[in-house]
Design a protein around this nucleic acid. Structure first.
Lengths: 197, 197
DNA sequence: ACGTTTTCGAACACTATGTTCGATTTATCT
DNA sequence: AGATAAATCGAACATAGTGTTCGAAAACGT
């Protein structure tokens, strides 16, 4: 159980690289960011970089692990405090609004989609796990993986669209729209059994 | 009105390149396909390639223009023959099933998403245009761009997920799922006014 | 058959990736 | 504090892909 924390230099290097990555992305966009930019910004040797990360994407995903973690926090806290997923989605709309800059630098970009997709898949997995339990009771019902895919993708795409287009709606409004569109259908296929985890 | 058809060589070259592109993608996937692969396969000189296309993405999108055109055909024919969009989505599920190989080589890939996004944006534009007319009549209703974004993205993502995961459902079943999930919400915000174009 | 347009292909400059290795610095342990 | 182990540095190198240029050759339309 007792994990010995790694060499201080390792933590420092990884942290420097991840911070530098975000700085570079915010400055020149995801696609334009190169490994060279990142290690220059971080003042880290080239070979050191490749000692820590396989390649560019490895760095990028690892750098955005904390973003996924943020999502996780919202997922968990919302699941506990609210009986329905709508409080959850509001919470995530609000969270994302605070990270608008960063999302904008990602959304739409060819490489940035890797991160968006990453988060969407995480959301999918989370939903799938919880829905499997709730839905197996019904026969001939909608398959949980389809519901999970539908919920996660429609949510993520509305979210990124919202952030990317500077549309004038507030997080609460966006959540209201999302709810209006999604809730009736979900109620229909689930008939009231919400997140009974 | 009379467009003089371009030099035979131009048509031939463009066709060769586009065909070669698809062949290469099916062989080694979207991301791995290089310009060199394509011109080798097409037996076209390097400089010739750059005389026709700005860069790689230009070729790729142009190469998939016909895919978008297919979608367009289905959109138009379905709009005419059916009063609701569900016949339309069934038609597109069926069409896509015939192109499964190709979609699989695109979906999930970093660069392949460019094409998926391209089609989704086309669908968005189409829906947005038609929904604007139907929705302006109501005040405080859902904004048409949000409905269009929701419909296009949820459809495309279910579609690509379906093709990519080899899930066992038929096109008709997928359409049924999609309809079950989406229709109630859409009915709620539109109250029966469907595609009165 | 003739003038025009397109294609060819090889050479070139450029940018970025990823590896290697000996020298140097820094952390950790006792 | 000193010995040992580990991480970092940085410069050089190999590789691979992009996009441009230009004169010669080929194919086109009429």
């Amino acid at each position: 159980m007792t994990e010995k924390s790694p060499d201080r230099r390792i933590q420092r290097t990884r942290q420097l690289l991840q911070d530098a990555l975000i700085a570079v992305i915010l400055e020149k966009g995801y696609d334009a960011a190169t490994v060279q930019d990142v290690i220059d910004r971080a003042n880290v040797g080239r070979s050191t970089f490749y000692a820590h990360f396989q390649d560019k994407e490895d760095l990028l995903l690892s750098g955005f692990e904390h973003l996924r973690t943020e999502f996780e926090k919202h997922l968990l806290s919302a699941s506990v405090t609210s009986a329905s997923p709508w409080g959850l989605s509001l919470s995530m709309f609000q969270h994302a609004e605070g990270q608008r800059q960063l999302y904008k630098a990602l959304a739409g970009k060819q490489g940035g989609n890797v991160v968006i997709t990453y988060i969407q898949k995480y959301l999918f997995t989370y939903l799938h796990t919880h829905l499997k339990q709730a839905l197996t009771k019904r026969k001939n019902g909608i398959p949980p993986e389809i519901l999970a895919q539908y919920l996660s993708s429609s949510f993520i795409s509305l979210l990124t669209w919202w952030l990317d287009t500077d549309s004038p709606y507030s997080a609460a409004q966006m959540n209201e729209f999302y709810r209006q569109l999604v809730e009736p259908g979900v109620n229909g296929v689930m008939a009231g059994m919400f997140f009974t985890s």
